[in-house]
């Protein structure tokens, strides 16, 4: 390869690299799922998010998720409580260490009082039980992504007497 050709190849590679960086910035995801495995129920949820134009990314291990969180910006994390390598409360602390404003939604297939207490101590956004179905989870994600107005103030019910 001639030096001119080499120079040209280098320039092309450089510009492609630049373009990749620019694309990454523009397509920055704002919702990250850290789930041990993707189940059919999640596929349904992902389709809904795609339909609602909510960018998201899925990763299957907590450590990889923390690593992603260190390098990229996410507004909402959906995190499964069952994780082999790290304790759930420790994972939340590490994620919040990367971005203290991130909204953490924790999901679990099996709940216990101690698990819920540990998770709630970390000041999470929403705690979801898988057996409750995806509708509530979807609603929580949409609200967290500000696609729905949060705050009960927008949804004021009629005054209710105290019994």
């Amino acid at each position: 390869m001639t030096p001119q050709r080499q120079c040209f190849e280098f320039l092309v590679q450089y510009l492609l690299g630049k373009w990749k960086t620019i694309r990454t910035v523009h397509l920055a995801m704002n919702c990250l799922f850290i789930l041990p495995q993707t189940q059919p129920v999640h596929q349904e949820l992902f389709q809904t998010l795609q339909r609602d134009h909510i960018p998201f990314e899925v990763i299957h291990d907590a450590i990889g998720g923390i690593e992603m969180m260190r390098n990229r910006h996410f507004d909402v994390i959906v995190l499964d409580a069952q994780n082999d390598k790290l304790q759930i409360d420790q994972t939340i602390r590490l994620l919040k260490g990367c971005n203290p404003l991130v909204k953490v939604i924790v999901t679990t297939a099996v709940n216990s009082k101690s698990l819920e207490a540990r998770v709630r101590k970390e000041n999470i956004y929403y705690f979801h039980l898988d057996s409750f179905g995806t509708r509530d989870l979807q609603l929580a994600i949409l609200t967290a992504c500000r696609r729905l107005d949060g705050g009960c103030s927008h949804d004021r019910a009629k005054d209710e007497p105290i019994h």
Binding site: K103, A117, R120, K121, N123, Y125, Y126, F127, D136, L139, A140, T143, A144, L148, D149, G150, G151, C152, S153, D155, A157
Partner: peptide, 18 residues
């Protein structure tokens, strides 16, 4: 325990369940 609940961020049905 010391627990915090941000009252402005969730829709009513989810907030009540939380």
């Amino acid at each position: 325990p010391f627990l915090v609940m941000d009252c402005g961020s969730l829709v009513e049905s989810l907030f009540e369940s939380e």
